[in-house]
Amino acid sequence: MAALVVGAVAYTANVVPIWEGIREYFADSSAPMDFVLYSNYERQVDALLAGHVDVAWNTNLAYLRTVGLTGGTCRALAQRDTDVTFKTVLVAREGSGLHGLESVRGQRLALGSKDSGQARILPIKFLADAGISLDDVRPVIFDSDVGKHGDTGRSELDALQAVLGDEADVAALGITTWQQLKQAGELGVEEVWTSPDYCHCNFTALASLDDDRAEAWTSHLLAMDWDVPEHRRILELEGLTRWVRPQLEGYRSLEEAMREQAIPLTW
């Protein structure tokens, strides 16, 4: 069988060992694969639509843009377990007295890159849902990793740094960045509010991908096992414990946010 070609964005150096490891894992299977790396999600979505790759490892924003550009015919094949319980956390200096969304009103709010679901688009939506518009806060914007859809966490770290440097009162972070930061111990920073779960990345394919090929590839992917050391090395680098079937309802909040904030499908 011809190798299925998967596209991924090289947002860190570890994307190479991750995908080499996954390719090796698939080498002996009935669904061998290869991968192609892109420098940003925009290029990758274009490549998927042009048929250069069969599957794209997309962020939530890249997936929804693909949904929009294909008239909803594209499909998701799989996600990380960590993708289906993604959250945004608003944090502030300990002792700030800020608790809950309403307390953010009037505060200096540090937000990440304009194409980051977790650090910009969704925080704005969650606030709006609570009746707090951008005019009701004083936004401090960090567009530090545009094109990577927030995947480098760079803009989130900048936002937190702004809080620590007293240039902002509240910062919006993705749950994975926040969990990593907390591993160092007590930071003098506390959670103000945590969002409901939403979905992050998924493997996106066009409708034209043969069902059997898609299923053979997906089921082999899902068989990766945390208890097998070679698999664990890759899973750990990619930030998951197991691959799961897509849970598309988790994209609804971002889909609404993109509509409400008039975020274009192409750019």
């Binding site: 770290l157 937190l160 930061l181 591993q183 160092a184």
Partner: peptide
């Protein structure tokens, strides 16, 4: 510790 943590997430993460 917060500065160290940011540095770790940033530098080691990359």
């Amino acid at each position: 510790r917060a500065q160290l943590s940011i540095r770790l997430v940033d530098v080691v993460g990359r």
